[in-house]
Write a protein that binds this DNA or RNA. Sequence first.
DNA 1: ACGCTTCCCTGGAGGC
DNA 2: TGCCTCCAGGGAAGCG
Length: 262
Amino acid sequence: MPELPDVEVFREYFNRTALHRKIVSVDVKDDKVLDGISEKKLVSGLKGYQFESSTRRGKYLFAMLNNDRWMMMHFGMTGFLKYFKNMDSASQHIRILLKFSNGYNLAYDSQRKLGKVRLIDSVYDFAEENDLGVDALDPELDLSRFKKLIAERRGKAKTFLMNQSVISGIGNIYSDEILFQSRIHPEHQVDRLSSKKIKKLYNSMKMVLNTAIDRRVQPDRFPKGFIIPHRDEGDKCPRCGGNIKKIKVNNRGTYLCPRCQK
DNA sequence: ACGCTTCCCTGGAGGC
DNA sequence: TGCCTCCAGGGAAGCG
């Protein structure tokens, strides 16, 4: 699930719950989610310290500790955070559990274990090493820079949007929405988009991501004209009433309205 | 550079 | 009920 808007909502949740509290224990329940760090090192880097702030880049969340290090969290397809007091209200697939001095817990939950957690010294270095492109909502990503990124690329519009090393944060779901709002077919070649269409794509990207964050990534609160609540073959296009179609692009399920997206 | 496949994991849905 | 296959919003790696 977690794409840029989801992770931004996680970040705000993290800030409301986990900042400025001493971590009194760290329980690694499944080391599959540890990314190049031993359980021992994760525990020693967290226990006794506290989180002071957080930042996000693409789909990655970084929590700064008062020892000048950062806890990196990536959520894969099924990850999320949950803050709770009593274990009977815990989530079901906790992989890492932090306990704070106030008696509350923060769970890193990841049913499919496709997420990753580690400690790092520098977000900048991490982004370099992992070849992370500019964050899709970074104010520095203006239209002219967006046009430059497109000009360097070939291939399908959806592939472009989902390439984390070019622009980071957009996944399968939101790329479909951005293309729907832009009225661009997911398989349209990016090098054949008109200047006008590129501008439309850029504006849709910012609008869709900001709207999703604003609505707390709850599809039932999304604007009427969004395709996300209609990701189902046989459902109707919220714009023209035509049938929603499902195709595969890069082996990922892709929903579109063939009448609106040429 | 791009596209395609496979793999990493778990679990729900649907067919038989 | 059990068994099987397919599918899912993450990404990396290998190959042509």
